[in-house]
């Protein structure tokens, strides 16, 4: 997969974030390559979400650098960062209510990013919205319904459509399947896998569900207490965990 001639899409160097005396995340470094899915796993409070917020520019890290295509996103001005956030990046929240406009129709939700980057043709926006609703398996007939009339799984799929409509390069996902029942989760994972492959997306996926990580991620980072304690290919980390905490994590998964 990796072409050594390319440069990493995202380079993270010694990133740290503290909340007063407590550690959010400490000394995190990694490279993310184009088309790669990186899973970040760990229990609640291990610093996964803090790390994700720092990477996505929603929170300012205390130390370290984040280079996106060679540009330092920590040092760049806020307007530049916000432009990146609505063009090259996308953020899928755990709770679709955080990522959707609940008072705006499904079509308007999908079209918002297009209009934010200058689309001014109603017909074209509507066509793109219809197309994307189809790609996330929502009937075209529901384009004018509000998200609150949708089920949880549909809301999450709508949020994904809304984020991917401008063909971003890098997607941040925070527990995208959290709070959904198992069969809906499976469908969503299937869909995500297809989209990631078809669009060649790079994804940073935060999850505490190892099954989700196994299905989607190429590489895994295991976090505990704000530190990365293990890092490697997904199968390698899950099948042959080295760190004691990872061994515990893998062995705590319930078998049906």
């Amino acid at each position: 997969m990796k072409d050594m001639g390319e440069t990493p899409l995202l380079q993270v160097e010694a990133l740290s974030k503290r909340y007063g005396a407590r550690i959010g995340c400490a000394d995190v470094s990694f490279d993310l390559w184009p088309g790669e899915v990186l899973g970040i796993v760990g229990e609640s409070g291990s610093g996964k979400s803090t790390l994700l917020s720092c990477l996505a520019g929603q929170m300012a890290p205390d130390q370290g650098r984040v280079l996106y295509q060679g540009r330092d996103t920590v040092a760049m001005s806020e307007p530049e960062r916000r432009v990146l956030a609505r063009t090259d990046w996308a953020f899928v929240h755990q709770n679709p209510r955080d990522g959707l406009r609940m008072g705006v129709s499904a079509g308007g939700n999908v079209g918002e990013r297009l209009m934010a980057v200058g689309a001014r043709n109603y017909g074209a926006i509507r066509e793109a919205a219809t197309d994307w609703l189809g790609r996330v398996e929502i009937e075209a007939g529901r384009i004018d319904d509000r998200p609150r009339q949708f089920s949880g799984g549909m809301q999450q799929r709508l949020q994904i459509a809304r984020n991917l409509v401008t063909a971003p390069k890098l997607v941040f996902m925070d527990e995208p399947t959290g709070g959904l029942d198992v069969s809906v989760q499976a469908r969503l994972l299937d869909l995500l896998r297809g989209l990631v492959r078809d669009m060649g997306l790079s994804v940073i996926l935060v999850t505490h569900d190892l099954a989700v990580a196994r299905l989607l991620a190429d590489r895994l980072m295991v976090m505990q207490g704000g530190h990365v304690i293990e890092h490697g290919l997904t199968d390698q980390v899950l099948d042959d965990p080295q760190a004691p905490y990872t061994q515990l994590l893998v062995s705590s998964v319930l078998q049906v």
Partner: peptide, 16 residues
């Protein structure tokens, strides 16, 4: 920051 895309979302909703 001249982020006015949202204003068109309102007009989009009108037409829809």
């Amino acid at each position: 920051l001249e982020e006015y895309g949202l204003m068109h979302v309102k007009l989009y909703e009108d037409i829809a």
